[in-house]
């Protein structure tokens, strides 16, 4: 078990070492390729600027995720109760999903102020996996259990609350984990699109700005922070999923074991 965790860490360390060595031996200037140590130094020097930017991006991502979750789940519930609603509105959701966000962003930036547009983009990409997974989950209840609820005369809302929502939980959480990553991507893509208009202050905007100034180490530093943000979101959602499902669902492993 231990070596299974050690191996990826060692590989990663070896890669960084190789990178460092390459830059040092070949004397590559930092504006072409900064060494990992140089990136670390930049991270410390630009700490105030970059952490403020990270906070902006994270806030937008989390807010978008929260919006996508509440609206996605609410819509899925309405779709499950009234199928004509689903037939009417699901195609629109699909159209929004298949249109690349990077193509929608500039348009949104015209109609909305930069912050709202970035939020809207992050929301749009995070929304669909939650809606479609939850809708699938709500319609995948065990038919014997449904019969049981019918036998005892359960009302549609009792069925929803006591049967369909709990059985949709694993599906919803699957959608949420996908949406977490997508929300960050959506926010970053929109920030880059907004970057040109120079209003944003998120991480992606810092990357674009540092690019104009040929401040390559800062670009890398911002990139590192974006990765760290993505990994953190993923870890948190993974943890939540495990906590909620570990006692009953096969997909969740009890981490203590």
């Amino acid at each position: 078990m231990r070596s299974a965790r050690l191996l990826p860490l060692l590989t990663f360390a070896a890669l960084l070492l190789g990178w460092e060595a390459l830059v040092q031996i070949q004397n590559i200037p930092p504006y072409v390729l900064p060494a990992p140590t140089r990136i670390l130094v930049t991270l410390r020097e630009d700490c105030a600027l970059l952490s403020a930017a990270l906070l902006v991006t994270l806030k937008i991502t989390v807010l978008a995720l929260a919006l996508a979750t509440s609206i996605g789940v609410a819509l899925a519930i309405l779709f499950a109760q009234w199928s004509w609603l689903e037939r009417t509105f699901f195609p629109i959701a699909v159209i929004l999903q298949v249109t690349p966000i990077i193509a929608i962003a500039p348009l949104l930036l015209i109609y909305l102020d930069a912050d709202t547009a970035v939020l809207a983009c992050a929301f749009l990409v995070a929304f669909f996996p939650i809606l479609s997974n939850t809708a699938l989950g709500l319609s995948s209840t065990d038919h014997n259990l449904r019969d049981l609820f019918d036998l005892y005369g359960a009302s549609p809302w009792q069925q929803m609350y006591l049967l369909r929502l709990p059985s949709a939980l694993p599906y919803f959480l699957g959608g949420l984990r996908i949406a977490g990553g997508l929300a960050l991507i959506g926010a970053i893509a929109a920030e880059i699109a907004a970057g040109a208009s120079g209003q944003g202050a998120g991480l992606a905007y810092r990357i674009v700005e540092a690019g104009y100034r040929l401040n390559i180490p800062r670009m890398f530093a911002a990139l590192v922070l974006i990765s760290v943000a993505g990994i953190s979101i993923w870890l948190v959602l993974e943890l939540v999923t495990n906590q909620l499902l570990k006692r009953w669902h096969d997909s969740a492993r009890d981490l203590s074991r």
Binding site: L145, L148, L151, L163, P166, S167, W248, H249
Partner: peptide
């Protein structure tokens, strides 16, 4: 009604 499977709510 007792079904052929236990049909318990796993959650």
């Amino acid at each position: 009604f007792v079904f052929q499977d236990p049909t318990l709510m796993p959650w």
